[in-house]
Nucleic acid binder design. Structure first.
Lengths: 165, 165
DNA sequence: TTTAACGTTTGAAAAATTCCAAACGGTCAT
DNA sequence: ATGACCGTTTGGAATTTTTCAAACGTTAAA
């Protein structure tokens, strides 16, 4: 591996770690994702642990979470090999976005529920300000959901074009 | 305060804490935001600390962060009062979204930088796969930025309509 | 000049998260 | 069967984050 490549690899891993952490995720998740994005071919658990200077334990757990979130998947490996190999999920960006969309939907649901509850409590007492705020919140997230869906379909068609080339 | 109101207040605080945590933020941030969304009038540092059963220290620091992020602001308070009062920033949702947009932009920038670096390393060695992935990543975040901007302007006009009523 | 009422900072404690080494269970080759 | 090689699970250690109590600086009244 050339020096230039090695530098890029290091930076990729470092920056993805930071980015993941800034989104409230585990830094190691970002490291693994970066490593797999970088790697031209699938890597085994041991490869990954060694490359990141970690033990198998946490890497195994992180791989589980990454597969749950559909950011990473098991690669096919020859029948005579008992080792598992991992690679980046080709739709990693789309899937990451879908995960985020779930969080948005949680908020829409939360706002709706709270709005209803406030509405019934309003009979008893003046809670108009709070009610309006819940309405605003629900409107906000509903609109956000709409835009996210638009984005998703536009991205999918955009990506299909990219793949063709 | 009626029982119904009290239950709603508790739930609001609890759920906002969870939501903030799920976005990688401090739970207490969510609690404070919920409390201020609930409160019909501004609250002092001591009010907030007492209502949440915390000491002034962490609440003071959280309020600082919330003001940095423009989710909370100091309310006007009479000249003869040395106490500070805090209230929800009226544009809290818009601002929260703007903060998120900054993270997106970081990712766009990151992808662009890495793409460039890979491009120059490519002369030396075959890194086509990695280059294509960086291109995909950059495309993804650029498209996302575009949609986020669209959302923002639509939300602002939507909200203006809400305020008029 | 003191005293009192604030918000902030700070150093250490408490809690939560991350991490490892070792144990474990499963599968295949011998 | 036995041993070798996997990935996962687990208990506790290490690290990071959150929290508090106390000290501090500032401001205004006494």
């Amino acid at each position: 591996m050339t020096n230039a490549e090695e530098r890029i690899r290091k930076e990729l891993i470092q920056r993805f770690g930071d980015a993941y952490k800034s989104f409230g995720l585990n830094k190691l998740m970002g490291h693994v994702v970066a490593l797999l994005i970088y790697a031209p071919e699938p890597l085994s658990l041991t490869d990954i642990a060694k490359a990141l200077g970690r033990s198998k334990g946490p890497v195994s757990q992180i791989l589980r979470r990454l597969r749950d979130h559909k950011l990473v998947r098991k690669a096919w490996s020859p029948e005579d090999n008992r080792k598992d190999f991992y690679e980046i999920e080709p739709e990693i960006f789309e899937n990451a976005f879908r995960n985020n969309l779930e969080l948005i939907k949680n908020n829409t649901r939360l706002a709706g529920q709270l709005k209803e509850k406030v509405a019934s409590a309003k009979k008893v007492n003046k809670m108009d300000v709070l009610f309006n705020r819940m309405v605003e919140m629900e409107t906000f997230y509903k609109l956000m959901e709409k835009h996210h869906r638009n984005f998703l379909s536009e991205w999918i068609s955009e990506r299909n074009k990219m793949i063709k080339n």
